[in-house]
Design a binder for these strands. Structure first.
Lengths: 250, 250
DNA sequence: CAAAGTTGTCTATCTTTCTAGACAACTATC
DNA sequence: GATAGTTGTCTAGAAAGATAGACAACTTTG
């Protein structure tokens, strides 16, 4: 009879192998396991996390399915790589530019859906449209063929009635605004959070269920302070870091 | 014989009720379910997500255990509230100040551990200490008795040999640096990501396993550009939003 | 070439999660 | 007060997750 630690794993809704996989992902992400390194063996992982070897194997299999590691029979499991993109956030942040500092394959913005509707009160307030209607535009953005983020844009319907069509044809918020006579705008505020992706976001960003999204809520306005756009973006946290601009205050 | 949809739920490591709970949490967070609203009934939730009513119940139970909703027999389940703190990030970002705009109960910084050691190469590079040693300080921060974030600070060991003791006694990075003769410093860069919490982070932040942390990696330097501190902070994403400062460029 | 160490695969069993159904307890409405 | 609708609790069984052990296939080291 083998000693059976009750383990008393709390029922947290996460399978053991998923928790192990996430822990290993962190070690890969922060460099404790560098590209090319060999992971601990399946036996040592199963001891470290107090699970059966098969459970540890499943964690590795999940990472391998993502292309993060590769197992080689007889020799071990090795870290392949961990590519993340940087998305710059600053006063002049625009959706379509400045993804991955060096402008790689142009960030491709697509309009998925648009509608004119009553905005939620907090958004109406921020856009300063008391009682008026708003244009809501749903977009998705990808770079190098890989989906990066989905966005929900809100505009004053009275002021910018044709913004959705402009965005769809120009493939850019900046260009659509320019077509409506707005030459310049600046980022006023950005708030960043993180949460699990919804099933809808998961399918748009080709993420598994339970994946994480970075959520930014931002307000853009004209240089004189008139609110223009309220934008909620959701980035695939696996693939994106937000790089925050700190202008020198010389 | 009831129709049995195979459901073909992929084995993603997340239990069904956890995915449902996270989906509901999103709806509460973004206002589709406002404070005081009644959630859909257990029966309608079970239909919507194609699970048994008991599974839907478990999702609700998880949210209730967090204090996010409350069930009342005979009448329904209601949204209680969703309190988040704002942590400001800008050029003058300091750890101990500016949590929750109005300065609530002082953000309390505690030193958990410190050591002098060889820094990882990328950190050595950013701190501009080629081959030298670094002081690593692990901290935790709470406000109103609730843990908010954990941090890993790196300093040049040659230049700031006693920084850890200073932080422990002063309870503040700014004060400890002042004691070492550094009157002012500025934030140079901040990169934000998100991932699952490790088990260690989970216990320090009193989060369940699998919870999400917002990760900021930041470099502070003296006004003349000399690197001072490299800081990795992990915030409990359930409780914190990062509020990014966009200074007006007048 | 031998030995030790590693991943790949198979079978069996136990535990946890999910499904299914029934009914009680309570609330709101007519 | 009757009725419909809601959450709370119980039992039972099916499906999925995790454990346990054995051995094959392969690589690296000596």
């Amino acid at each position: 009879m083998t000693e059976r630690l009750p383990a008393a794993r709390v029922r947290n809704g996460y399978s053991a192998w998923r928790l192990i996989a996430e822990e290993l992902r962190v070690e890969i992400g922060d460099g404790r396991l560098a590209v090319g390194d060999r992971l601990p063996t399946e036996n040592s992982l199963s001891q470290r996390f107090s699970v059966n070897r098969h459970t540890a194997r499943q964690a590795i299999a999940a990472l391998a399915a993502e292309g993060l590691v590769e197992s080689r029979r007889g020799s071990g499991t090795f870290v392949l790589g961990d590519t993340v993109r940087l998305h710059r956030i600053g006063v002049r942040t625009r959706l379509s530019s400045s993804l991955h500092e060096q402008r790689s394959a142009a960030a491709d913005v697509r309009v998925l859906h648009s509608a004119v509707e009553e905005p939620p009160v907090d958004i109406a307030e921020r856009l300063n449209i008391g009682g008026g209607r708003a244009v809501r535009v749903e977009t998705s953005r990808s770079a190098d063929g890989q989906p990066i983020s989905v966005g929900t844009h809100w505009f004053d319907a009275e002021r910018l009635p044709n913004i959705a069509e402009g965005m769809a044809s120009a493939g850019s918020v900046t260009a659509a605004l320019a077509a409506s006579g707005i030459k310049d705008y600046v980022r006023v505020s950005t708030v960043v959070g993180a949460r699990h992706a919804t099933s809808m976001e998961g399918s748009l960003l080709s993420l598994g269920p339970g994946a994480i999204v970075l959520v930014t809520e931002a307000l853009d306005s004209e240089p004189d302070g008139t609110p223009l756009q309220y934008l909620v973006s959701r980035f695939a946290a696996q693939r994106v870091r937000l790089d925050i601009e700190h202008p020198r205050t010389d």
